[in-house]
Write a protein that binds this DNA or RNA. Structure first.
Lengths: 277, 277
DNA sequence: GTACGGCGATACCCGGCGGGTATCGCCGGG
DNA sequence: CCCGGCGATACCCGCCGGGTATCGCCGTAC
């Protein structure tokens, strides 16, 4: 199976319409129809059900859509990582606005190593670092457990800290010495922000949809929401936002993560610098 | 990047010789040279170093070899799983000679379910079940923790048991009531069997290289080796092999494993039958 | 009932690309 | 110095992937 055929099939399976899929692929409809028919012949099974109502996926078609997407991602990651390996320097992905001091220290420590290469810092929206790593567009990322998933990645723990609630300065709870998680749940005047899922979509709910730290900070200052974040975010707080410790919130661990089996020399040096070894 | 190009590159990278790689691919050498050159041009980086001493991989080349193999496996798995989805029935992979009673009970329980489909049982050599699953050639497998890796698979625990040492009946230790692991280590007359690694190769050592249960059983009966296996293997023992409990050996858990996100209806029914729910 | 429009399949044509053979250029060894 | 091994280059061909035109089938609207 060639990747071109897979791309064709995925396009048709997503559009469920040969004409639109062909348009998306920048080609005419007939060769697309033929390519899919050939693919079905070679696989020995129908992938799509064509009837007068339109196009639908068969069982094997659903399987190939899921597996084919994964395979295409693997091919794209292979290509991206090879391209990256051909260029000097490292790309480090980090959540914008999180662990800023730790990141600065890490970069300084690595920069002092002999033979350090330039590090490009890619600041990400929530949850995007893992995608950049998995897609091969970054060499290493700062992730925060338990929020980010490290499945399929190698990791090194850097730092563990408690969390604080960030509240609008004018809110009654902002005067408290401490808060419990339960007190912050279901506040009618401060609906919880909706963080993106790994696929980029947002869950439903009353709170604002959040993509990055700046949005969140500003919405808290405006009194529209509140959040529970690692203590280290205190360093970035502006006026209008008050931190209150939340002792029963889970501890947050900041980890360096990288794709397995990809310890290049610069990456190994970065890890050494990060762990102080 | 097309899978054909990846296959070409992997062949050359493995052979480090254009002529042999072309032969392996069933084509002539010139088009292979051109294909690799085109790939390098498109990726914007050299993958192979050609000099008078021969061909060597560059850094990016090593990256593409590793990542490209993974991508090719993903494509092959997508194809195999799609083919499998087009055929009726389930394929269950199990280690030959292990958990036989549990497997029989599982098949009986599933067979009694309404709408059960035929189950083809693929009996494997040691460690092969995981490969069959990952390659898409089986739908579900019986694995044994901590021996088999379940990384990247969904699992359901079925059974946990202790282990027994299997010794030649004539061996002095066979008369013992119990044994400790330390007593079985480094016996000069019974060198430990060498089980295959996940890639199929065998570690070095004095003991016999083992591929399946029958080999192992027979070599024990011949007094050439000994082994520590889950208690349930007692049911398969023939003459010449004596089981002795080893209380300090790790517990073995038998699990059903399947590729994530692949719960087809028959697979779901099998899991239901397996867990007695 | 008929005419029309939307959609996928088919028919047919063409150009480029993938693959083949012949040969070159380079280098190292006998 | 010649030869042999190996990868690159030159050049040619056939096929396959893609394009246009058109068909066949339905569902719908009047």
């Amino acid at each position: 199976m060639e990747t071109r055929e897979l791309r064709y099939f995925v396009a048709v399976a997503e559009e469920l319409h040969f004409g639109r899929a062909a348009q998306r692929l920048g080609m005419a409809q007939p060769p697309l129809s033929r390519a899919i028919a050939r693919l079905e012949r070679r696989l020995g099974t129908a992938l799509l059900e064509r009837d007068s109502h339109g196009v639908a996926l068969t069982g094997p078609g659903r399987v190939l859509l899921r597996e084919g997407r994964a395979a295409l991602e693997a091919v794209a990651a292979a290509e991206a990582r090879t391209r990256r390996a051909g260029q000097p320097g490292l790309v480090l992905a980090a959540k914008a606005g999180a662990s800023a001091d730790l990141l600065a220290g890490l970069l300084a420590a690595y920069g002092a190593e002999p033979g350090a290469v330039p590090v490009e810092v890619q600041l990400c929206q929530y949850g995007e670092q893992g995608q950049l790593l998995r897609r091969g567009e970054a060499d290493v990322a700062l992730l925060h457990l338990p929020f980010d998933s490290t499945a399929g990645l190698d990791t090194e723990e850097l730092h563990t800290e408690g969390q604080v609630a960030l509240l609008p300065a004018a809110h009654p709870l902002a005067a408290r010495r401490e808060l419990r998680l339960a007190e912050l749940a279901d506040l009618p005047d401060l609906p919880a922000p909706r963080y993106p899922r790994p696929d980029g979509s947002h869950p439903d709910g009353p709170g604002p949809a959040i993509r990055d730290h700046t949005q969140l900070h500003q919405l808290i200052a405006l009194g529209r929401t509140c959040a529970v974040l690692p203590e280290s975010c205190r360093a970035q707080l502006g006026p209008g936002v008050t931190p209150v410790p939340v002792p029963d919130a889970p501890q947050v661990t900041t980890v360096l993560a990288w794709p397995p089996d990809s310890r290049s020399r610069p990456l190994a040096a970065l890890l050494r610098a990060a762990t102080g070894g």
